[in-house]
Amino acid sequence: MAASTREGRPRRTHIPSKLMRESLLDKGVMASTETDEELDILPDVNVLALGGQSILDRGKAALFPLVDEFVHCRKKHKLIIGVGGGARVRHTYHICLDLGIPLGGMAMVAGAVDEQNTRLLQSLLAKHKGITLNKDHFLDLPLWLEAGMIPIMTGMPPYHYWEPPTDGRVPTHGEDLGMFMVSEVLGARSMIFLKDEDGLYTADPKKDPKAKLIPSVEAGELLEMNLPDLIIERTVIETMVQARHTHRIQIINGLKPKLLRRALDGEHVGTVITAGSAAQTTRRKTATERNGRATRSGRSLANA
């Protein structure tokens, strides 16, 4: 039996560990948990995010060629496909806002649209081993990938009622962020977003003919540009700065399906966003802190 220690009045029973008795909110303790060798869980899998409004809502004309491309690419690469919502999510948000549904409630109900789109795509890919991946079966991924399956999942992350509040009134953790996190936590080989434009523009090219394509950009730079319209959720860019694995994402035009095989082969065929120097700065700062506990002395007493 593992040794336990008791202390305090009434006494607490501890299990000895590096974090025993430590406040997990102490900055020094937090920094001490950094590692340079965080494990890649599934390093040979490629995560694809399929736009809802940009691709799926266009129906057969956009989707059928892409489905063929998925099948082609699966011969060489392991794929996980995440599916977005689209027009019906926007409609859901509008109705919810009108009814005064709180943010978490909106996040909870919006995922149903992703579910519908997941079923649609799975029906098309079923004969090519497309299979719906419920998030409860996330741990089955190795089995399915080894069996040559193409797991298809809802893009929305499972934040549900617990969606954190923001300055705005709609959830900020949508399908783009959900799939980015799949890539990040798995240490995936690549993260590719399939949209209906050639990449990221300085403005929405559908509305502004003077919008310019940005072929490559660092996440920090992009955030500083504070563009009025992004083709990808801002939360992805913000999270990327902190990422340990997914330091490069590519946004490609899913209406030109053959770009996918090239992107999977590592070619630059859309907009490449890299974590860049911002991420490195973060890591350096963390490494410095790790060498000594932070010096500010204020301290709370409660142990959560």
């Binding site: 937090m30 001490s32 948990t33 499972p158 617990w162 902190q242 340990r244 963390t286 959560a304």
Partner: peptide, 27 residues
């Protein structure tokens, strides 16, 4: 909170930023 594998990385270490205080507060 139910974030699990979708818990975002932070700028300091690897302990999840959202733990039980966060989940209860957001409830």
């Amino acid at each position: 909170p139910p974030y699990e594998y979708w818990e975002k990385p932070t700028d300091r270490g690897r302990i999840p930023a959202n733990r039980t205080d966060s989940g209860v507060y957001l409830t």
